[in-house]
Amino acid sequence: MLQKVLIEIFDRDLANLKTEVEAYANEDDLWRVDGEIANSAGNLCVHLTGNLRHFFGAVLGATDYVRDRDAEFSSKFVPRAKLLEDIELAKTEVRTVLEGLTEEELSKPYPVEVFGHPMTTEFFLVHLAAHLNYHLGQINYHRRLIATI
């Protein structure tokens, strides 16, 4: 049951991420920072797709994706088309992994101790959904704020 809920949430929020990235009238605004805004929407998008492709794809799905977390926040002016492509890749990897997980696997410890202590796979996947939604809200706010500056 949790599997289906997570698939629905990740599908919805990754579709919303795509919509947000597409909604920037000026592609360069994806990368704007101003005043106290430390992270651009572009960097948050790169971070989200890197995070999901790592924790779902590489760790649980044994893909060959290699995460470069530092680059997620230092990259500049990645073309919008590449951001959108990465969203689709993340969406595919998340769905593929979730569809393949059993209830037993969800209740087992996640293979990596991300927070310095063990947690179940289901706990960590719910955390990843919340993390995606948190940054999605930041991107939405960034887009609306940057449009007024």
Rank of each mutant, 00 (worst) to 15 (best):
L2A: 08
L2D: 03
Q3P: 10
Q3H: 10
K4V: 08
K4Q: 13
I7D: 11
I7P: 09
E8N: 15
I9L: 11
I9Y: 12
F10S: 14
F10K: 07
D11V: 06
D13C: 07
D13W: 09
L14M: 11
L14P: 13
L14K: 07
N16V: 13
N16P: 07
L17M: 11
T19D: 14
T19Q: 14
E22V: 10
A25R: 06
N26S: 08
E27A: 12
E27C: 06
D28T: 09
D29F: 08
L30H: 01
W31K: 04
W31S: 06
V33L: 04
G35C: 07
S40M: 04
A41L: 04
G42S: 03
N43G: 01
N43Y: 00
N43T: 00
N43P: 00
L44G: 03
V46P: 02
T49D: 10
T49C: 04
T49E: 11
G50H: 05
G50R: 04
N51M: 14
N51A: 10
R53E: 15
F55T: 02
F56M: 08
V59Y: 04
V59W: 07
G61I: 05
G61E: 03
D64F: 02
Y65M: 07
Y65F: 15
R67P: 06
D68Q: 13
A71N: 13
A71H: 09
E72N: 06
E72V: 05
F73R: 05
F73M: 04
S74D: 11
S75K: 06
S75Q: 12
K76R: 15
K76N: 13
K76I: 10
K76D: 15
F77V: 05
F77N: 12
F77C: 06
P79T: 12
P79I: 03
D86Y: 09
I87T: 10
I87P: 09
E88A: 15
E88M: 11
A90H: 05
K91S: 14
T92H: 12
V94C: 00
R95L: 10
R95K: 14
T96A: 15
T96P: 05
V97P: 06
E99F: 01
L101Q: 05
T102W: 07
E104G: 01
E104Y: 05
L106S: 02
L106A: 01
P109G: 07
P111K: 08
V114Q: 07
F115M: 02
F115A: 08
G116E: 07
G116A: 02
G116K: 02
G116P: 02
H117L: 08
T121K: 15
T121L: 08
E122N: 13
E122D: 12
F123G: 05
F123M: 11
L125S: 00
V126G: 00
V126M: 14
H127Y: 15
H127F: 15
H127N: 15
L128V: 01
L128K: 06
A129H: 12
A130V: 14
H131A: 04
L132E: 14
L132S: 11
N133M: 10
N133A: 02
Y134C: 06
Y134S: 10
H135I: 04
L136S: 08
G137T: 06
G137Q: 11
Q138L: 13
Q138S: 02
I139R: 09
I139K: 08
I139N: 10
N140Y: 12
Y141P: 03
R143V: 02
R143Y: 07
R143C: 11
R144T: 09
R144A: 10
L145Q: 09
I146D: 07
A147P: 10
A147D: 13
T148Y: 08
T148H: 09
I149Y: 15
